[in-house]
């Protein structure tokens, strides 16, 4: 029997303390234990990006992260992006304005990735955005809208 591991971290600023089976992925902990179902499971093997969250400010795929590894770290999920009053983050608003989504299933991961893409300085040119948003599959094919939204939120015009 696997022994459980006490794991303490913050999610969207809230402290969390859990006894975790080391087999649990961060994604499953967020979804099944913490009720944060915005992060989505699309492959469970790091092949789609739907589960993208930020750990210590960097984007990662939470499905390939054993949750015990976030001990002492801070996690930000899609639920922590809009303001406390519900005001959309400019990138979220840009996703709405540029219709950067269809079914919406990959969208939380796209938004988390887009936030990081801009913060990393990888939104300087359209091809940079395309390349650095390629870790997030969208089967509906909303890529042109996603490009436009990230570009707009980065304060750039087309080109």
């Amino acid at each position: 029997m696997t022994s459980e591991v006490v794991t303490e971290f913050t999610v969207n600023g809230q402290a969390v303390r859990l006894d975790l089976d080391p087999r649990e992925s961060l994604l499953d902990v967020l979804r099944e234990r913490l009720g944060l179902t915005g992060s989505k499971k699309g492959c469970d093997h790091g092949q789609c990006g739907a589960c993208t969250v930020h750990v210590d400010g960097r984007r990662v795929v939470s499905c390939l992260l054993p949750a015990v590894q976030v001990n002492g770290r801070s996690v930000r999920t899609i639920e922590g992006v809009a303001g406390p009053d519900g005001a959309l983050h400019p990138l979220q608003q840009a996703f709405v304005d540029h219709d950067a989504l269809q079914c919406g299933y990959c969208t939380p991961g796209q938004v988390m990735s887009g936030l990081a893409c801009i913060a990393e300085g990888n939104a300087g040119a359209d091809d940079d955005i395309r390349e650095h948003m390629s870790g997030n599959l969208c089967r509906c094919g909303a890529y042109p809208g996603i490009l436009a939204a990230v570009r707009a939120a980065a304060g750039r015009r087309e080109g």
């Binding site: 990662v60 795929v61 990393e120 870790g135």
Partner: peptide
Amino acid sequence: ASQQLRNM
């Protein structure tokens, strides 16, 4: 890989 995976 992808930026997410390169961050891990």
